[in-house]
């Protein structure tokens, strides 16, 4: 079976901080949209990090069309709260009164679980939204909080249901819980790097998510380095890069000062160690999880913009994971 990033209606994209989950979420959304799916991409951390990936200054509320078939939105808790109140009570006045009394302060500080549930509530609303008979979106991609906060984020419905013993919030909590625990409706896509710490965190997250009854999709291994050397050369560089390079130079009949040799050796050895570690870590990951893995190459550019997102979207499409 082919690994699929789009087997559920909602793809919850997460990963350890700094692994590039936002970029992968954007690439996934763009790849799916390019294949004709109607896609909504949501961010919930208020970081405004999606907008630059589409070459626009900021994402507004409500959603914004950023590419053919693709809308994106930065979900803000107090707007979600007002929208929610309006939807369930049809009262605009309360919405206004809320704005007046700093609703966000209430939502984010007094009951932080409430904030999370409003944010996931918005995801659920988008997933269920219908235009006439059909779903408004074929796929909702969520740029979710990092894995360190993800269990608490996804567990908010349960926590709120425990804390709030009656009323519509409790009903809402159960509705969200249904979505999160139904593999046809949502699955978590974890993004990781071929390095020890992110992989360790990925393995732990998968176990935690499974315990919570949340489906886990394929794991995307981001920034996989190309292997410049054969395995034999790699070994010789790891054991003594200076010697290996000096010998090759002698054989080829070129001379270079000691400093040059030193610099070349340091970089070659670092690369050789990295690719060896990378293979070891990926083998370990493969053994520890029974999830398919999708490798994405490292980019040389320090800035990620629309061009890089397009490139990564084509990598994901070519992997066959978007269907």
């Amino acid at each position: 079976m082919h690994p699929s990033l789009t087997s559920s209606r909602v793809a919850i994209v997460s990963g350890k901080g700094g692994v590039g989950k936002t970029t992968i979420a954007a690439a996934l959304a763009k790849a799916a949209a390019a294949q004709g799916k109607r896609v909504l991409l949501l961010e919930v951390e208020g970081r405004n990090s999606l907008a630059p990936l589409f070459g626009i200054p900021s994402l507004g509320y409500p959603e914004h069309v950023v590419a053919p078939n693709l809308s994106a939105e930065s979900v803000v808790p107090d707007e979600a709260l007002v929208e929610y109140l309006y939807m369930f009570y049809g009262i605009k006045r309360i919405g206004k009164a809320l704005a007046h009394t700093k609703a966000t302060e209430f939502a984010t500080n007094i009951a932080p679980g409430l904030r999370d549930i409003l944010l996931i509530g918005k995801v659920k609303e988008a997933e269920r939204r219908r235009v006439r008979e059909a779903y408004a979106f074929d796929l909702v991609v969520l740029d979710a909080p990092p894995t360190g906060r993800l269990p608490r984020f996804l567990d908010a419905p349960r926590a709120v249901a425990d804390l709030v013993r009656a009323g519509p919030i409790r009903t809402q909590a159960h509705g969200v819980l249904d979505m999160i625990t139904d593999p046809a409706r949502s699955a978590v896509v974890l993004v990781t790097l071929p390095e020890e710490m992110p992989v360790q965190e990925t393995v732990e997250s998968i176990a935690t998510l499974r315990r919570m009854g949340v489906a886990v999709g394929p794991v995307v291994v981001n920034r996989v380095a190309a292997e410049p050397f054969t395995k034999t050369v790699e070994r010789s560089l790891i054991s003594d890069a200076r010697k290996a390079i000096a010998r090759a130079m002698e054989k080829a009949g070129v001379a270079a000062p000691a400093a040059t040799l030193e610099r070349l050796a340091a970089v070659a050895a670092a690369s050789a160690r990295r690719t060896r570690n990378q293979r070891a870590v990926m083998t370990e990951l493969e053994a520890d999880i029974d999830r398919p893995m999708i490798s994405v190459p490292a980019l040389l550019s320090p800035t990620v913009g629309p061009a890089e997102v397009d490139f990564l979207a084509s990598v994901l499409s070519d992997s066959g994971a978007i269907s």
Partner: peptide, 30 residues
């Protein structure tokens, strides 16, 4: 990393290790 003057000469040797190492170094510089 610091620039290496002899990088082109090293790359031009055609030795697989040296060529790969020089290209890698060049990527790092870029």
């Amino acid at each position: 990393v610091e620039p290496i003057e002899e990088l082109d000469a090293i790359k031009a040797t055609g030795d697989p290790l040296l060529t790969a190492a020089a290209e890698l170094y060049n990527d790092w510089r870029t």
